[in-house]
Design a protein around this nucleic acid. Sequence first.
DNA 1: ACGCTGATGTCAGCGACTGTCATCAGGGTT
DNA 2: AACCCTGATGACAGTCGCTGACATCAGCGT
Lengths: 185, 185
Amino acid sequence: MARWEGGARERLQAAALKRFAEQGFEGTTVAEIAATAGLTERTFFRHFADKREVLFFGHDAFQRSFTDPIEAADGTEDPMSIVANALESATVQRLPDERRPWSRARQAVIEGDPGLQERELLKLSLLAVAISRALQAHGINATAATLAAESGVAVFRVAFAMWIADGEERSSLECLHLAFAELQA
Amino acid sequence: MARWEGGARERLQAAALKRFAEQGFEGTTVAEIAATAGLTERTFFRHFADKREVLFFGHDAFQRSFTDPIEAADGTEDPMSIVANALESATVQRLPDERRPWSRARQAVIEGDPGLQERELLKLSLLAVAISRALQAHGINATAATLAAESGVAVFRVAFAMWIADGEERSSLECLHLAFAELQA
DNA sequence: ACGCTGATGTCAGCGACTGTCATCAGGGTT
DNA sequence: AACCCTGATGACAGTCGCTGACATCAGCGT
């Protein structure tokens, strides 16, 4: 596959983030993004289901960074520590320091548009559902699994917000541990 | 206000729900809805910010049925019992038995369209934020308030789902109590 | 040289949504 | 009763997100 593909998708993603940062999400047309990437509007929609999705592409892989460690866990632990381990693994894997500037730019765009916030809520909700399902595959009952999953996602949100805060320099893993500490209350 | 307003908004809402139930959300154009209500597409968008919003109109009032009882509570109780009382009050007020068929029809439409589910998540998230803020006005700290608010919304979702389930005949208040019992696990 | 395949371009079109101006019903004013 | 004023609606044009259909074109294997 990808025979002479010059990374069209990546170019579109970069072009979109750049334009959104400069002109805002609503102020940018898909045609502009495509032109910036040297492509056509039609091609944009072949790579992304809709205009918002360009900022959320890779969610499947992102989700798997959480669910894979859960699948690999031995079923003897309690739900919350399985989730804690999965969060650590996913955080280390998906939020390395080099990625922080990119995450900041992306999040600034999302917070500037209600439609994007809506989409983000959806993705987080899907993540919680996926984690819950992965836990249930270990024989954990639905309510306990969902509770652990929702709590885990809540912790992750806090950690992520901390990680991309202005001036923050601690690693994502440190932020995660701090967020966990905050949950004890 | 509303000088010769023949209930345009209500007619639009009724027309929309009817059409959505018959043809699905995507399969219905705004022009159709407006025509069914004897109005114009342009008038639809003067009453509702977008096509989805016609199914979520009144969210402000809905939200206030939760936050008003919280504001009225004396600050001596613990967060979770304040929330519990607010849920009871809102449930009784907003989910009377007569409204059940309407709620069922509306929910069936929402579950048939991803875009509408996205919007519903947003509204529930806004509700949780509003409840959390109302609790914080009583001097409850942010994390405890948010935790109680999210838990409360979770309980409400379970209760609502139970209430509109096929063949269910118990009142919304009974469903709420059952949902609360389920949370103890 | 030939065809096959998959990514892209082109074009036409629908539907959501908006800005703008005209219209029109009712209420208050003189 | 003639007057304007206000606010809801209609009419219209236009932008943009998004899709279907068909053409094109680069590389790969035969």
